Amino acid sequence: MVYKIDPDADRVYIDEFRKKPIGAHSPGLQRLLNIMRHDPSGRQVVLVCRKPFEEWVLGMMPPDRSQPIAIEDEPVFTDIESAEWEVFRRRWRAITGQDINMPLRD
């Protein structure tokens, strides 16, 4: 059985991730994250750490893993949770076609 994301039913997990992007998650959110971490095209939004524990940017993993990661110059994240939230938002948009227009925290 292949799990798929249902943008309407799975939307409830957005707020759970938003509140706690790192750590243990509910089974439903973990299912969603497992799906989001595998892109059949081979392209994948990833975090790239530029300064350990201090600075992260986003990159795009190419389908051919022998090719370099395309690294974005901006935005630069100074906390891992904000960076993880942006990865989640971009993967959600890539899979569902819908934007998540919410900040990490209100």
Rank of each mutant, 00 (worst) to 15 (best):
V46L: 07
F77A: 02
R31N: 06
P68E: 12
R37T: 11
G59I: 02
R89A: 10
R91G: 05
R31K: 14
F77C: 03
R43V: 10
G42V: 09
C49E: 15
A24D: 15
A70P: 00
T78H: 15
S82R: 05
T78A: 06
I69W: 00
D79V: 10
R43E: 15
R31I: 07
S82Q: 08
G23P: 04
P40M: 15
P62I: 04
M61K: 13
D64V: 07
R50A: 08
F88I: 02
P68M: 07
C49H: 04
P63K: 10
K51N: 10
P63D: 09
A70V: 12
W56C: 00
G59D: 07
V87C: 03
R37K: 14
E54P: 01
G42Q: 09
K20S: 14
E81D: 15
A83I: 02
P68R: 09
H25M: 09
L33I: 05
P40F: 14
E55H: 07
R90S: 06
G59A: 08
D73W: 01
G42K: 07
R91V: 05
A83S: 05
N34C: 09
P62E: 12
N34E: 13
E81F: 06
P63N: 12
R90L: 14
D64T: 04
M36S: 05
V46S: 04
A24E: 15
Q44M: 14
I80S: 07
F88T: 02
E72Q: 13
S66P: 00
V48A: 03
M61P: 00
V87M: 04
I80G: 01
R93C: 12
E86S: 05
C49F: 03
D79L: 06
I35S: 08
W56M: 02
P40D: 15
K20H: 14
W92Y: 11
R50F: 06
M60A: 11
L32Q: 02
P27A: 11
W92N: 05
L33H: 08
P27G: 09
I22V: 14
E55D: 07
A24V: 13
W85N: 07
M60E: 14
W56G: 00
F88H: 02
P68Y: 10
R43M: 13
T78R: 12
I71W: 05
V87N: 00
I71K: 06
E86F: 01
Q67Y: 04
V45E: 02
Q44I: 02
G42S: 10
P40G: 14
P62A: 11
T78I: 12
S41L: 12
R37P: 02
I80M: 13
P68L: 10
H25C: 04
G28E: 09
W92L: 07
D39G: 02
G59Q: 02
M61A: 12
H25N: 11
S26Q: 11
D39L: 01
D79Q: 14
L58V: 00
V87T: 05
F77V: 04
